[in-house]
């Protein structure tokens, strides 16, 4: 019972970036407890991925061949379940991905093992695993424990652990998949429309608007402000959901991660976890919000507690 198992995740032929973070977390945990790190990869041709999992600190790569390459929840559940029977790991780690949200609670519920999602710190207090996560919109942190649980399933928050760059030659083994009655069937992936619209992921200067905009008629003022300042206009989820700006302008977990951004001006964005996942890495965040308690101020470099419309009215004069 001294193994840490990582479930590698992939989509559209690529391992997810988060998988490498999860491996880094597992290797970190291994150092404190002397556990082994066993990385399982489920794919139609697992060798294609396992070649990229030769990472220092990993003790074993377990290849599991499945018929369809893309995620299918019943398949993942059944295989992870068999892996737990066979390997008896103390900890099973995945990223806090949408796929993990589909399969991990099922395994946890059926086996009644320890379980926590969106964890950003893992530590041992003696033999007790402590998983730290947030509550109440990031305003509180919670240390969770799992007394009496021989196995604990954890999904890890992204952008938390630094991937390990050092390579190693990791032994590969294979595990045969149990047969599964798949109750969902993949039809197609729908990728975001490639429009002639700008790619906000490539923009260095972004001006983003959130719920504070209140109604569609107010969008124009900020389009004009962004143009005048030489910024690209982005938005948070509610703005795109309302159809006030195209989905391609949405920053966050289900929108774009603004990788190239250097300066991010957030107007009327309170800062949900999902939004911050797309922009918290930006070095210069300037947030304007009427609510001094807004989460965005905890990641911003500069905070302005003010009415976004009044600020916008004044700000434009400095750039005309």
């Amino acid at each position: 019972m001294n193994k840490i198992m990582v479930i590698a995740e992939h989509r559209l032929g690529e391992l997810t970036a988060a998988t490498f973070e999860v491996i880094a977390a597992a290797v970190g945990l291994k150092r404190t407890k002397g556990f082994s790190v066993n990385v399982a990869v489920l794919a139609s041709n697992p060798a294609e991925f396992s070649a990229k999992l030769n990472i220092a600190g990993v003790d074993e790569i377990i290849e599991i061949q499945i018929q369809e390459n893309q995620f299918q929840t019943d398949t993942y559940e059944a295989i992870i379940n068999s892996l737990l029977d066979e390997y008896e790991p103390s900890v099973v780690l995945t990223s806090n991905s949408i796929d993990a949200w589909s399969c991990m609670p099922i395994i946890a519920a059926k086996r009644q093992c320890g379980f926590a999602t969106d964890v950003f710190a893992l530590n041992y207090d003696g033999d007790d695993l402590i998983a730290t996560r947030a509550a109440y919109g990031e305003k509180m942190h919670v240390d969770l424990e799992f007394p009496g649980k021989e196995t604990v399933l954890i999904t890890l928050r992204g952008n938390t652990y630094k991937p390990i760059e050092q390579e190693a030659s990791v032994p590969v083994s294979s595990f045969s998949a149990p047969s599964v009655n798949a109750r969902t069937t993949h039809k197609r992936f729908i990728e975001p429309e490639t429009t002639s619209d700008v790619d906000i992921a490539q923009a260095e200067l972004l001006l983003s608007i959130g719920r504070g905009i209140e109604n569609e008629d107010n969008i124009e003022q900020f389009e004009e402000l962004a143009d005048t300042m030489g910024f690209t206009l982005g938005c948070s989820r509610p703005i795109a959901d309302n159809g006030w700006l195209p989905k391609s302008r949405q920053v966050g977990q289900s929108g774009k991660i603004v990788v190239a951004c250097n300066t991010y001006l957030a107007f009327g964005i309170s800062g949900s976890v999902q939004h911050m996942a797309g922009m918290k890495h930006v070095p210069n965040i300037i947030a304007v919000n009427t609510d001094a308690e807004a989460s965005i101020f905890t990641i911003a470099k500069y905070g302005v507690v003010a009415d976004m419309f009044e600020i916008a009215d004044e700000l434009i004069n400095h750039f005309e």
């Binding site: 402590i130 240390d143 424990e145 799992f146 905890t298 500069y302």
Partner: peptide, 19 residues
């Protein structure tokens, strides 16, 4: 439950420089 709260606490958050 599958997890138990050991403790809850207000995190030390960095705060923006207020303008």
């Amino acid at each position: 439950s599958l997890s138990k709260v050991r403790k809850m606490y207000a995190p030390e958050l960095s705060q923006a420089e207020l303008i």
